[in-house]
Simulated scan of single mutants.
Amino acid sequence: MREHRRLLDGQLDQLRKQRFRSVFHLHGVEEVESASVQIVRRECDRRTDRGPFDLIGDVHGCAAELRELLERLGYSADGRHPDGRRVVFLGDLVDRGPAIPETLEIAMNLVCARGGIAVLGNHDAKLLRWFAGKNVKLVHGLEQSVEQLEGCSAADLHRYRLFLESLGVHYLLDGGRLVIAHGGLAQRFHGRTSGAVRAFCLFGDTTGETDEDGYPIRLDWGSEYRGEAAVVYGHTPTLEPAWVNNALCIDTGCVFGGSLTALRWPERTIVSVPAREIYCDHG
């Protein structure tokens, strides 16, 4: 019995590490018999959100281009749209670019005050670790975020941290016809929550190894995707967005001198604005 108890305790710890939001440990027969099961919709299940949406790729602190893109999409200066459209950010609001605090302010207004949606990107997640006092290396653009945020008030830093902490890593939208995640998401993970799902959403499908620059080596998950839901994502800079098996990457590398791109949903039309300059070398 003691060995069984030890094994069970170890498995419970593994469940917590897999980022299950709640793990219930029942002690004794009375607790088991009095327990009840309540079905709760997962936070990633937002199928009742129907849009119309304007999905925006990796901003990386390019606030000027973001404002220009929003204007082209028909949004007013305060984030309202005459047709009731809503913005959806696909992650990586921060790092590398020239205006991280301003970008966060724009995103927070659109999400918190105008009903927009945002998912967490891998750069956003790393900034959260810095907020939490973790030992993170100031590389790959995090140094720009930290330098700019150090000039902000404690109250603003607290607001930015709470906002990023509130973001999920993927959502099912529009009756399940649309899935959003920063790094994309294989069909088997749609609507699920676990450590593996979170890793895929943040980094895409990877080999578990890194290249000479310290970046994860990525696999082309989209070439094998066969799901009915459209998956729209960012993370991997591309020159031009192109649908592959009902999956679309709209990170067009604005911070590297490319463009900032939006996908209008459900129209499936592309709107882009060019970068005003090269803010960061792609290396």
Score class of each variant (00 low, 15 high):
79 G>E: 15
55 L>D: 02
230 A>E: 06
172 L>K: 10
208 G>T: 07
93 L>F: 08
167 L>A: 04
255 V>E: 07
6 R>Y: 00
111 V>A: 07
3 E>T: 09
62 C>R: 08
170 H>Y: 07
242 A>K: 11
127 L>R: 05
91 G>K: 08
12 L>N: 10
100 I>D: 04
233 Y>E: 09
85 R>F: 00
32 V>H: 13
67 R>E: 15
36 S>V: 12
100 I>P: 04
213 D>G: 09
40 V>S: 14
247 A>H: 11
197 V>G: 02
65 E>C: 11
36 S>D: 14
14 Q>S: 03
184 G>T: 10
160 Y>F: 15
158 H>D: 15
81 H>I: 06
38 Q>S: 13
167 L>M: 08
260 L>P: 08
264 R>N: 07
223 S>Q: 11
122 N>V: 11
90 L>F: 03
261 T>L: 09
225 Y>S: 10
41 R>Y: 12
13 D>N: 08
230 A>Q: 07
118 A>E: 03
229 A>R: 05
163 F>L: 06
37 V>Q: 15
265 W>S: 05
206 T>L: 08
6 R>Q: 01
179 V>M: 11
54 D>K: 06
67 R>F: 09
123 H>L: 04
133 G>F: 04
240 E>T: 14
232 V>H: 03
244 V>M: 06
138 L>D: 03
165 E>I: 12
219 L>Q: 13
83 D>N: 05
243 W>E: 14
219 L>Y: 05
201 C>E: 00
274 P>G: 05
13 D>Y: 04
206 T>I: 14
129 R>A: 14
201 C>N: 02
134 K>M: 13
80 R>D: 14
96 R>T: 06
108 M>P: 03
151 G>K: 14
143 E>V: 02
206 T>Q: 09
22 S>I: 12
97 G>Q: 10
196 A>L: 12
178 L>H: 02
40 V>K: 14
113 A>D: 15
283 G>Q: 14
101 P>H: 07
210 T>Y: 05
149 L>Y: 03
207 T>C: 04
259 S>C: 00
26 L>A: 13
171 Y>F: 11
266 P>A: 01
258 G>Q: 09
170 H>C: 08
14 Q>N: 00
136 V>T: 11
215 Y>I: 08
166 S>N: 01
83 D>W: 01
94 V>T: 00
259 S>D: 01
126 K>A: 02
118 A>M: 04
81 H>T: 07
96 R>C: 06
104 L>W: 00
66 L>Y: 11
276 R>H: 12
267 E>C: 00
188 R>M: 04
186 A>P: 07
12 L>M: 12
199 A>G: 10
45 D>K: 05
277 E>D: 15
135 N>F: 12
97 G>P: 10
50 R>D: 05
